[in-house]
Simulated scan of single mutants.
Amino acid sequence: MNPLVELAGAGYAYEDGPEVLSGVDFGIAEGRALVLLGRNGSGKTTLMRLLSGGLRPGSGTLRLDGAVVTHDRAGLTRLRRAVQLVVQDPDDQLFAASVEQDVSFGPMNMGLEPGEVRDRVDSALAALDITALRDRPTHLLSYGQRKRAAIAGAVAMAPRVLILDEPTAGLDPDGQERLLDVLAGLRTAGTTVVMATHDVDLAVRWADEAAVLTPTGVRVGPAGELLSDPALLASAGLRQAWSPAVTALLRAHGLLAPDVPGPRTPEALAALR
């Protein structure tokens, strides 16, 4: 499958610092649920900002639908209509007085007609289950509500790719599950979702595909396969997920046939009894 957005031979170094990424070939295929994992400082945030146009590659190229993205106004406008990044801390993204004003900012700056802006805002608020909060001042929202409002602002841009930096961080278990339900709905509606996380269990349960950043580069492949590799996870400073570990233990004791998929959730494990 041809990548929708991709980096080819990309490298980046911050001013007066060493290269954070070097020679990276990495693409996002349409319709996937992709997870980014790696230790702090591995380059996950830099990679996401390169893909979304927030940073310009120091070497190599960024392509959208196979065409090189130029980092002028026209090129970045084209990219940001297709790719949206939601940063980890919603307070770094929310700035308007009310939820509705914040969510409408992007579509209004696209030059859309007022009716189209209103429709996009309504749809985004509904998708994130925060319609009742549309008139609420953003500074009076709970942390979980601010997270969803920040995502709604990106969703209102109708991106083909939505990139989320640690979207479940700071949320309680119920808040995490509600957010995952929202992401499932966005995928069903046709949005490709990319999530950066340190939670390997969540990654195994949620993702189709994984990209693991290690000191030697980026490894990309099926999530179940990559996240079952103890050596790869150790090189990335990650612990092994319980699902692959339990699956290996069950098979070693003859309790799970080789052709039967392993449990990915506690509920699936309980159903094996």
Rank of each mutant, 00 (worst) to 15 (best):
P3F: 01
L4P: 03
L7T: 08
L7H: 08
G9Q: 14
A10P: 02
G11Y: 10
Y12R: 06
Y14N: 05
Y14K: 10
P18A: 15
V20F: 01
V20K: 09
I28W: 04
I28S: 01
I28P: 08
A29E: 14
G31I: 12
G31A: 10
R32C: 03
A33P: 01
L37K: 02
L37H: 06
S42G: 07
T45K: 04
T46C: 05
T46G: 10
L47M: 08
M48Y: 02
R49V: 02
S52A: 15
G54R: 06
L55H: 11
P57G: 01
G58H: 11
S59R: 15
L62F: 11
L64H: 10
T70N: 02
H71D: 11
H71A: 14
H71T: 06
A74M: 03
L76R: 05
L76M: 07
R78I: 01
L79K: 10
A82P: 00
A82T: 13
Q84E: 03
D89Y: 14
P90C: 03
D92R: 11
D92W: 03
A96W: 01
S98I: 04
Q101P: 00
D102E: 09
F105L: 14
M110S: 00
E116W: 08
D119R: 15
S123A: 15
L125G: 07
D129K: 13
D129R: 15
I130H: 06
T131P: 00
A132W: 01
R134S: 14
R134M: 03
R136D: 07
R136Y: 03
H139L: 11
H139W: 14
L141Y: 08
R146N: 07
R148L: 12
A149M: 06
A150W: 06
A150V: 09
I151R: 04
A152S: 08
G153D: 10
M157V: 13
R160A: 15
V161D: 05
V161Q: 08
I163T: 01
L164R: 05
D165I: 11
D165E: 14
D165S: 13
G170S: 11
P173S: 13
G175Y: 06
E177C: 00
R178V: 00
R178K: 14
L179Y: 07
L180P: 03
V182K: 01
V182E: 05
V182D: 02
L183D: 07
L186I: 05
T188V: 14
T191Q: 13
M195Y: 00
A196D: 04
V200S: 10
D201S: 11
L202T: 12
R205S: 14
A207G: 09
E209C: 04
A210Y: 09
T214F: 02
V220H: 05
G221E: 10
A223K: 05
G224Y: 00
G224C: 00
G224Q: 07
L227A: 12
S228I: 04
L232W: 12
L233G: 13
S235W: 09
A236P: 08
G237K: 09
G237L: 13
G237T: 12
L238T: 10
T247I: 03
T247W: 09
A252Y: 02
L255R: 15
L256D: 12
D259Y: 02
V260S: 01
P261C: 11
G262H: 12
R264N: 01
P266T: 13
P266L: 13
E267D: 15
A270F: 13
A271K: 08
L272V: 01
L272K: 05
R273H: 11
R273W: 12
